[in-house]
Simulated assay, not measured.
Amino acid sequence: MRVEDVDGMRVATFGSGPRVIIAVHGITASLMAWRAVARQLPEGWSLVAMDLRGRGHSAGLPGPYGLPRHAEDVLRVADHAGAGADAVLTGHSMGAYVAALAAAERDFSRVVLVDGGLPLPLPEGVDADAAMAAVLGPALARLRQTFPSAEAYVDFFRAHPAFAGNWSADVEEYARYDLTGPRDALRSRAAGEAVREDGRWMLLESDRIAAALATIKAPLSLLRAPRGLLDQEVGMLPDELAASWTARLPGLADEVVPDCNHYTILFDERCARTVADRLTSGR
C-alpha cells in the first residue's frame, strides 16, 4: 500500500497495475474498507481509495460536506491517479451514492455500486436524523464514545453483530486505523458533523441521486448483500427496491452476493473475491 496526501486528502494505492479502480468508502468508514478487495485483484490492476473529507486521515479537511462535495474530491483524486475513461469507479454504502454523482459528471469504463447507490425512501413523518439513527445504529453510537485503549475499541468492533463469527485481520486493521486521541480517551476519526450532514443529504436528496443514476453512460452494476448492517435478514437494499430500479434503469445489472452482510461484502474473503471479480471482469 502506497500512501500520499492529495490536497490534504489521504489517498492509498493498493497494487501497481496500469488498470485503475477508484474506490469510495461508506459514511463512517475509511479507505481501509477496501483492503481485502484490493488483495483479491488480478495482476495488472491497482485500486486507489481515499479517506473522504471528515473521515480517517482526511478528518481535518473542512466542510461543507455533502455528497456533491465528496464527488468533487473523488474526481480530483481520479485526476491525480491518472484515471481516464478506461478506469472503473466503485463505492460502498454511502460511497456508492458518491460514485453515482461522480459518474454522472465524467465517463468511466464501468460503475459498480456495492450495497448502496439506490435512493432510500424516507418514511412519511420521520425526520432524517431519526432515520439515520434507525439505520446506522452502532456506527453512529461509536462517534460519541471514547475508549480507554486500542484493544477496547477493537473489542467494540468484535461485539458488532455484523462481525460476530466474521472477524479477520482486515477488520482489526480497519478498526485500529480509525483511532485517534489521547491514550485513555481514544475515539473514532470520523467527524460527527460530517456524518450528520452527509446522512441528511443522502436521505433528503433522493431526486438528485435518481437524476445522477439516469445520467450515467457507463455500464452500471449493483452488488447487494442479502443481510443488513446489523446482520439482520433484510439487507440495506431489499429485493423490491432493487427491482423497482432495474425496471426504471434497464441497463442496471443487479446481483446479490450470497452469504454476506452490509460489511462483510467487503471484508469476507469469498465475498471480497466476488467484488474484485466484478470490478475487473465487467460481469
Rank of each mutant, 00 (worst) to 15 (best):
V3E: 15
V3D: 15
D5W: 04
V6F: 13
D7H: 10
G8M: 06
A12G: 12
T13Y: 07
F14N: 09
F14H: 15
G15L: 10
I22K: 06
R35H: 14
P42E: 03
W45K: 04
L47C: 09
V48W: 02
V48C: 07
M50F: 09
D51Y: 00
D51P: 02
R53T: 00
R53D: 06
H57E: 06
S58L: 11
A59K: 02
A59Q: 07
P64V: 06
G66F: 10
G66L: 10
R69Q: 12
R69F: 01
H70S: 02
V74E: 08
A78D: 05
D79M: 11
G82V: 08
A83P: 02
G84E: 04
A85Y: 00
M94G: 03
V98E: 01
L101E: 00
R106S: 07
D107T: 11
S109D: 14
D115F: 09
P123V: 09
E124Q: 09
E124F: 01
G125P: 05
V126R: 12
D127L: 06
D127A: 07
A128T: 06
D129L: 09
A131E: 14
A133S: 13
A134R: 13
A134F: 07
A134T: 12
G137T: 12
L140G: 10
A141D: 15
R142Y: 04
F147W: 10
S149K: 04
S149C: 05
A150M: 08
E151N: 03
V154S: 02
R158A: 13
G165V: 09
N166G: 13
W167T: 14
E172R: 12
P182A: 11
D184M: 13
A185C: 06
R187G: 02
R189V: 00
G192F: 11
A194M: 10
A194F: 01
V195H: 02
V195W: 01
M202T: 14
A210G: 14
K217I: 03
A218T: 13
L220Y: 06
L222R: 08
L222I: 05
A225H: 03
A225F: 02
D231T: 05
L237R: 10
P238D: 05
P250H: 13
P250K: 11
D254H: 08
C260R: 04
H262E: 04
Y263T: 01
I265N: 05
F267V: 04
R273T: 15
T280S: 07
